[in-house]
Design a protein around this nucleic acid. Structure first.
Length: 640
RNA sequence: GCCAGCGUAGCUCAGAGGUAGAGCACUCGAUUCGUAAUCGAGCGGUCGUGGGUUCAAUUCCCACCGCUGGCUCCA
């Protein structure tokens, strides 16, 4: 009888009879491992423990400690969910049930959507399935058999029909439930203990809005109760820093149903936006030309740019009373208007790269269901820039812009992930142009040395792009900055520059945004800092608190001194107790509370309470305090 | 746009087929205080909007608007 040789992670080799399983291996190594074993990694591929190993391989046994085991756990939990759903709704069609970050989901085709009560009931049945401790059994079937087994489920039949001729078709059974599935799974349903169903949602079959909507159930699953509790706790905590909540608590912005998707900025929020804008202006003072262009345009412009054909459904069309037609549109992007300005003059190659920057307001008619706080709005202000340059300047410019964007984020302690997005199905320009644009941008991106992820088909309709994504408090990623290469627009707008050879040449355009939009960036900042902004960003940097009316004059003087030095300071001399006013200051997350009692009033000092550090107070002279705040503001220090 | 949930005072939330409450906020009065809520009084809501059922609707039904979570889409 032949045998197989299995190399373990520590380099040792085990010899087992051919046909041995992962279980056998685990048992051979030791009873502890046999008990803890969940799955096995064979030459990098994770498999069921019960599956025979047919050849020599490098292997490792997966236990709870292996991060990959979580995915197996979650996918197996999804199966249990489906098991329970089928028990309650025997005719439910079974869609996809993958593991996702922190959990899993499963899509079902059912005659009516799930209610919250259904969810509770389903979870209860799931507990029964785990208590029954059914083994997950894998079986290889041929196509005819697969079609026969899933004859009552059109969703599964569709999946089977898509499997290639030489793909192995496997089905998994856990107790009463059979599913078409590639696996792998945990040994049995009894291994699943710490899970919770979270929400339901509609989801189009195959993610295609033209197809029927399935009912999706989201859940989470963990190996340990502590991990589950910890995750649920994290969910709660992140809700507390949700920018919509913090924005209201700190009085930064509001929304109104009469202007869906458009923020109202309060004085405090406006102050912050102005601070951000000022910072960007400072950074772009020397190498950029800031311009402003109209908000409303005749459709003629959009016909040239291609927006009328490719982007009209996202544009707010405006009625022209004279023609009776909706011939005008609010601009959804700045680019076309910047091309008009570029066009209006002759440009020399000596002037390139030429960078037009702007902070104009844009409007995009997002579908109502897409709106979400400040992260997804219909009206926003982009920190936009269009660079006109020669092809041989692309690499340099992309490197420069990338450094600019990442450097800007760094000021706030934000980190971004980069994505390289290529031609989408709906686009302008021919393939040759796209080949060139993608090659040029990717080469430039490679040259920056930054790691990036590839997103095929995710580019803008006019060119490939590099996106800079940052996560919000509940883990959703949002695109902030972007660098988009555009060969199409210069053609469409017949843009040119005069080269060294005194003839006309076609420039290339790069679209660039750093914050993406002030709105979205504010959302990210609010959540990133949980509202506790560093001094330079805080709308109110210092609040001066006289202990009683007797120090009012000294407090008033201090406030004026701070203001004269450019500090955003206010005086809170209300007749509330000091305790109450300190609390208000902490709740509003004011960086510094400057307390003036009789000792301070007499000595020309101030007792400074720093946000978040409690009762510890720093007594310093007024001059020292003013200098401290001014320095922190000027250096954009991430304090306190 | 699609699926689901939600919409009661400025905010957080109770409530019930018989025309509404609490805490905080706000206003006034008292208190003048040494680092996270001083005490008292008062003001405040055609219960998102419109229609229907009913003797009676804020409560039940329908439509619309908005918000939330997903799907699609996206800065």
């Amino acid at each position: 009888m032949s045998s197989i040789h299995l190399t373990l992670p520590d380099g040792s080799v085990r010899e087992l009879p051919a046909g041995s399983t992962g279980h056998d291996l685990a048992r051979a190594i030791g009873p502890g491992l046999a008990k803890a074993a969940l799955a096995i990694r064979i030459d990098g591929q994770i498999r069921d423990l019960a599956r025979p190993i047919d050849a020599d391989a490098t292997v490792s046994i997966l236990t709870e400690r292996d991060p990959d085991a979580l995915e197996v756990l979650r996918h197996s939990t999804a199966h249990i969910l489906a098991t329970a759903v089928r028990q309650i709704f025997p005719n439910a069609g079974i869609g996809f049930g993958p593991p996702i970050e922190d959990g899993f989901y499963y899509d079902f085709e059912v005659p009516r959507p799930f209610t919250p009560d259904d969810l509770a009931r389903i979870e209860e049945v799931m507990r029964g399935v785990t208590a029954a401790d059914y083994p997950f059994e894998r079986e290889v079937v041929d196509r005819a058999e697969a079609n026969r087994r899933f004859a009552d489920d059109p969703l599964k039949l569709e999946r089977i029909s898509e499997l290639g001729p030489d793909e192995t078709i496997t089905v998994y059974t856990d107790g009463p439930f059979v599913d078409l599935c590639r696996g792998p799974h945990l040994p049995s349903t009894g291994r699943l203990k710490h899970f919770k169903l979270l929400t339901t949602a509609g989801a189009y079959w195959r993610g295609d809005e033209r197809r029927q909507m399935l009912q999706r159930i989201y859940g989470t699953a963990w190996f340990k109760k502590d991990d589950l509790d910890g995750y649920l706790h994290r969910l709660e905590e992140s809700k507390k820093r949700d920018h919509r909540r913090v924005g209201r608590e700190l009085d930064l912005f509001m929304f109104h149903q009469f202007a869906p998707g458009a923020a109202f900025w309060t004085e405090r929020g406006t102050t912050m936006i102005n601070v951000l804008n000022q910072y960007l202006r400072e950074l772009q003072r020397d190498d950029y030309q800031e311009i402003k262009t109209p908000l409303l345009y005749n459709k003629g412009l959009w016909e040239i740019s291609g927006h009328w054909g490719k982007y009209r459904e996202n544009m707010f069309l405006v009625l022209d009373n004279e023609t009776g037609e909706h011939d005008f549109s609010l601009k959804p992007m700045n680019c076309p208007s910047h091309y008009l300005m570029y066009q209006s003059k002759k440009h020399s190659y000596r002037d390139l790269p030429l960078r037009y920057s702007t902070y104009d307001v844009l409007h995009r008619n997002e579908v109502s269901g897409a709106l979400s706080g400040l992260t997804r709005v219909r009206q926003f202000q982009q920190d936009d820039c269009h660079v006109f340059l020669m092809e041989n300047q692309i690499a340099d410019e992309v490197r420069r812009l990338t450094a600019f964007i990442l450097g800007y984020y760094e000021t706030f302690g934000l980190t971004a992930t980069l994505k390289f997005a290529t031609r989408p199905p709906e686009r302008v320009g021919d393939d040759a142009m796209w080949d060139r644009a993608e090659a040029a941008l990717q080469a430039a991106l490679e040259a920056t040395g930054q790691p990036y992820e590839l997103k095929p088909g995710d580019g803008a309709f006019y060119g490939p792009k590099i996106d800079f994504d940052v996560s919000d408090s509940i883990g959703r990623k949002w695109q902030l900055g972007t660098i988009q290469l555009d060969y199409a627009a210069p053609e469409r707008f017949d843009l040119s520059y005069v080269g060294e050879d005194n003839t006309g040449h076609r420039p290339v355009v790069i679209h660039r945004a750093v914050s993406g939009s002030f709105e979205r960036f504010m959302a990210i900042l609010i959540e990133h800092f949980a509202g506790a902004f560093p001094v330079w960003l805080a709308p109110e940097q210092v609040r001066v608190l006289p202990i009683s009316d007797h120090q009012r004059e000294a407090a008033d003087r201090l406030t004026r001194q701070l203001r004269a030095a450019g500090v955003r300071a206010t005086l809170d001399a209300g007749n509330d107790t000091l305790n109450y006013r300190v609390r208000q200051g902490e709740v509003m997350k004011i960086p510094y509370l400057a307390v003036v009692g009789q000792r301070e009033a007499d000595g020309g000092t101030v007792a400074v309470r720093t946000r978040g550090v409690g009762t510890k107070q720093d007594v310093m002279t007024v001059a020292e305090f003013v200098a401290k705040v001014v320095a922190e503001d000027r250096t954009r220090a991430r304090v306190p």
